[in-house]
Design a protein around this nucleic acid. Structure first.
Lengths: 340, 340
DNA sequence: GGCGGGCGTGTGAACGTGCACACATTAGGT
DNA sequence: ACCTAATGTGTGCACGTTCACACGCCCGCC
């Protein structure tokens, strides 16, 4: 004799079928589309309302072998996640695209060693049909785990050790850093420094490379100050260090708008005029850029489009289309304002 | 005769059992704990590695009737989500607590009408054991949907129409707004205005109520300016409006630090000294507060703790403990700095 | 009038897992 | 020597769903 179940158990398709006096096969058909008579359809609709039925998607996934969900994994320690204006925009861009295709975006944050393991388990547990990875570092242990995952994965950005054949989407950090530095030079600046952050990530490292390429033989390693975070207060500290090392500095490329805003404060404290004495450029074209005095010249980072593109890449692989396995780089217009 | 399956299908517990020459029951036991001999354990471990087995968590959930996951639903339009410094902190606080209990936090963003429906379906589909809702508006349609959900739900904040018996966690917006306004008055300010945002949310509306309570008979409705977003640029605009309406204004309570920072800019443009001519206070104690000149006096919002507390509430209900159905309010210390 | 085909419905077999139970083996106590 | 307990292992069923198939019905056509 079966145990009596708790009365609060969820209604199943059987309950609906019983209440409507029709077989569960037909109930399934009205849910998923198929030939059903109007009478049966009506009876089932009434029964569903009566018993308060909601389909158990987990059970459905088990048999259909797909979940209509895509994981969006953010690999960030606390601080970066809160401060970075791009991640939110990438996420919303991805969500909009997935939503249009009727996919559920499932956002997982990795904030500790334990999270890494649990999230890996989750992603390989059949809850998602595809995965988007944001801000992976070189040598991130999760890269190995995901490589042997049965699920299509797309990276935003491309860590150096990303195995070949895994698509990614990003921006040309090297090229845009080079370009904006060159334009800084074109305005007559001679002693140009850089405040670099997150150099353990490809995005951060590539901006330094572009900066170096632009300066060529005029590149001076001591004028690149590395700070841990893309953060206002580190912009202040980084600029002070630069001023110590080269009091006659007349140009600064900051790795983000937040850093640039901090740099502006440090310059103001030191009595320098921007852009008269020192030209300052940022990166991101975030809300910081219009919030400073003067407004920042910067590189527009198409974060929303990046997210949409990553989602699109996953969706295309889900449909079985073959996609460009070499990755996609989106253009980054330079926005010229008053700060340089 | 069964069809031959695609060779790329995922390994199941049966494959492991076959490879190890042991029944699947024993494999299940080494996965979930139970009496298993060392030899069998070793053979199974080898077999798992050989066939590349990862348990199908969806199937496990189906039989165990629980998912070890908690949904974290953010009900925000684009802009607010990107600008609000609290949501990220609440999320990370919740994640830390859930992670400690070995629960997976699953973050779902609602950004459109379509999202509302898909997320409701997801939440009622058996993928989560509990739900945390952030920043619900009064009359949000999702409140009704969630009310009849079989899953324990906790709100962060408490919309006016939240049905009784549903626990929530928040801060005393009314009380802290009243307190900081009173301290503004205590410094001798006589003509005090407010820049209010998101008044369709309980948090925003309650801050106006507290402001009004503090001023009592001196309250002047025209000195409350409502703006749509907790955003720097709206702070600028709000402050300009206040200056238009009351050129002799000498105190301002802004509904967030970002608004306060904007107000500082507008005041600077108008040639007023802060705090000499006008006292300004904010709300949140976010990174904005130390980024302005002068630093902001503000209300510290314990966002991380709010998230942790919400997660704890869900976990306790999951364990069957009975929790305070009237909700929890966390203390909000006032931080007194230079701006007032 | 038999027959093929569209329509509407019911039925059984999966999907991959955990769990209760049955059973087998061994050790230890009376 | 027998019973009991502890330790291992195998088997059947259930979870809630979809899907392929089979069945019956009615229509129109040769």
């Amino acid at each position: 004799m079966p145990l009596s179940r708790p009365p609060s158990r969820r209604a199943t398709i059987h309950d609906v079928a019983a209440a409507a006096g029709i077989s569960r096969g037909t109930v399934s058909r009205v849910l998923n589309g198929g030939y059903v008579s109007p009478q049966a359809r009506a009876a089932i609709a009434a029964a569903i309302a009566q018993v308060g039925y909601a389909p158990n998607t987990a059970a459905r996934n088990l048999v259909t072998q797909r979940s209509q969900a895509v994981g969006f994994v953010v690999l960030e320690p606390h601080t970066l996640f809160l401060e970075d204006p791009n991640i939110g925009a990438i996420m919303l861009g991805a969500n909009a695209t997935l939503s249009d295709a009727d996919y559920q975006m499932v956002n997982l944050v990795v904030d500790s060693e334990r999270d890494t393991q649990r999230v890996s388990r989750y992603l390989s547990g059949g809850f998602v049909d595809g995965v988007i990875i944001v801000s992976a570092r070189t040598h991130d242990p999760i890269i190995r785990v995901l490589a042997q995952l049965a699920v299509p994965t797309t990276y935003v950005g491309h860590p150096r050790d990303l195995p070949a054949g895994i698509p990614f989407v990003g921006i040309d950090n090297t090229g845009s850093a080079k370009l904006i530095t060159q334009r800084l030079m074109a305005t007559g600046r001679r002693r140009i420094g850089m405040i670099a952050a997150a150099v353990d990530r490809d995005s951060g490292a590539d901006r330094v490379i572009g900066f170096r390429q632009a300066l060529g033989s005029r590149f001076a390693p001591e004028l690149v100050v590395e700070v841990p975070l893309y953060d206002y207060s580190w912009g202040v500290k980084g600029m002070r260090t630069l001023l110590d090392r080269e009091p006659n500095i007349d140009g600064v490329f900051a790795g983000s708008d937040a850093l640039a805003a901090g740099a502006l404060e440090a310059l103001r404290d030191a009595g320098r005029q921007v852009p008269a004495d020192v030209g300052v450029v940022g990166f991101d074209d975030s809300s910081w850029a219009l919030r400073t005095q003067p407004h920042l010249s910067t590189v527009r980072q198409p974060a929303t489009e990046v997210g949409a593109c990553a989602a699109d890449l996953v969706l295309r692989r889900l449909r079985g289309d073959d996609v460009d396995r070499n990755g996609v780089l989106l253009p980054t217009p330079i926005v010229w304002r008053e700060s340089a």
